[in-house]
Design a protein around this nucleic acid. Sequence first.
DNA 1: AATTTCTGCATTGTTAACAATCTATGTCAA
DNA 2: TTGACATAGATTGTTAACAATGCAGAAATT
Lengths: 237, 237
Amino acid sequence: MTNEAEDKLDTLRTDPDEQMIVDRIYSAVMEQKLAPRTKLSELALCETFGVGRMRVRRALLLLSSQGIVDLQSNRGAYVACPSADEAREVFVARLMIETGIVRELARCIGENDVQALRAHVEKEELARKSDDRTEVIRLSGAFHVELAERHENPVLTRVVRELVTRTSLIVALFGTNQASTCPDDEHASIIDAIVSGNPHSAEEAIRHHLLHVQNSLDLEQTQKAEPDLVKILTGRI
Amino acid sequence: MTNEAEDKLDTLRTDPDEQMIVDRIYSAVMEQKLAPRTKLSELALCETFGVGRMRVRRALLLLSSQGIVDLQSNRGAYVACPSADEAREVFVARLMIETGIVRELARCIGENDVQALRAHVEKEELARKSDDRTEVIRLSGAFHVELAERHENPVLTRVVRELVTRTSLIVALFGTNQASTCPDDEHASIIDAIVSGNPHSAEEAIRHHLLHVQNSLDLEQTQKAEPDLVKILTGRI
DNA sequence: AATTTCTGCATTGTTAACAATCTATGTCAA
DNA sequence: TTGACATAGATTGTTAACAATGCAGAAATT
């Protein structure tokens, strides 16, 4: 009786298929396995995930509402392709939000949380040593989500995850070949600053890090690949 | 030719019907015209907005992804009913984000922006004097969105708007009859602190204000109305 | 009378067919 | 060769019918 009720609760919140598709695409974007402008055709997704078209379309709608996917009327869904302006907006937002996150962490972080963060950085180093590029990229972004998660605040975590994922797209588009991933010593510095208990220096550490990432990008010039070839050719804009 | 292209661009991003439904429900929640737990039946929405069921369902999905609507499998959509924990999470998130917003505003706000904010507060006072409760509620929340909008950063604005809207639900659920809306003199104080150019005092002003709102709530006790009667009666949880 | 079970109705979820739009290819004229 | 135009195929958008589930009221049993 109790078990049955619990089972129902699981399926109640979010359909497993639905969230599965969203998560998989989310992860793929984070690991830069899905490049901006990649077409996500409904049929392909249906076959990939073995679900009906409705599920796919719902997942795409959710992804588009979070800026990960660009839904174009009658033309299909594409992995989003943030403009330079959007990129700056994401970084400004991240600066404001993540400084708040580390500031509060500096005030009251538990030993367990510190260990979790250090373990994460260690994983990053390992992945770096093994030249596992995909894993390095994934962990670099995940570190910032991990920071947010220390607050055990789903609302906050969701916001940060969205911004981090969009950052992956931005790096893919504007990243210069050098230094397109967070150097992990900066991550370690952030942890140190938090542990030191000084909110201000923690803020400075993350601000420095985010600005460093942003400056490693090429936001002034044109984007990688065709700027907006598709739209231009079809007479839009 | 150019006009035609622009017209297309409009319909390209978000379907007007779709966004219209979302916005209307969003506004209704902000103005506390839609109470938590209100059932949003598909048929009723179809008739209200004169659109097909598909549009309605898509709108509900979007609203649920933002925590405004609770989609229950086979049971329908209800205006969300945040728990006390969720409420605290929203306030923590708002504290972190909005302190960042006003801090940066204190560093670099233009004269136009100040005027826009002051005009907003004046509208609040007017509404208060006319005892237009709905309008007061709407403007109280909108002030915080207005603050975010000074950064001209859609990413940031979207996050704040979502949190503010969820706060409306929280106030509706946990608000004591007294002081359930932001007192506008605090809004004025926030502007003053920003104008003074001191980031720290601006942070303090908004922190004070948000804590004040949170403390005017009754987050410890049970929620207004039936705590979770529906779920209990149907044997869930 | 209270509780349980059953039945019909209303609402939601899903599917599949259809309509509309876009893309690519091929044809024709300049 | 180049460009416009037309056609066919593929893809997306929409609708309507159907299936599944939940809900409320009636009937029946204790």
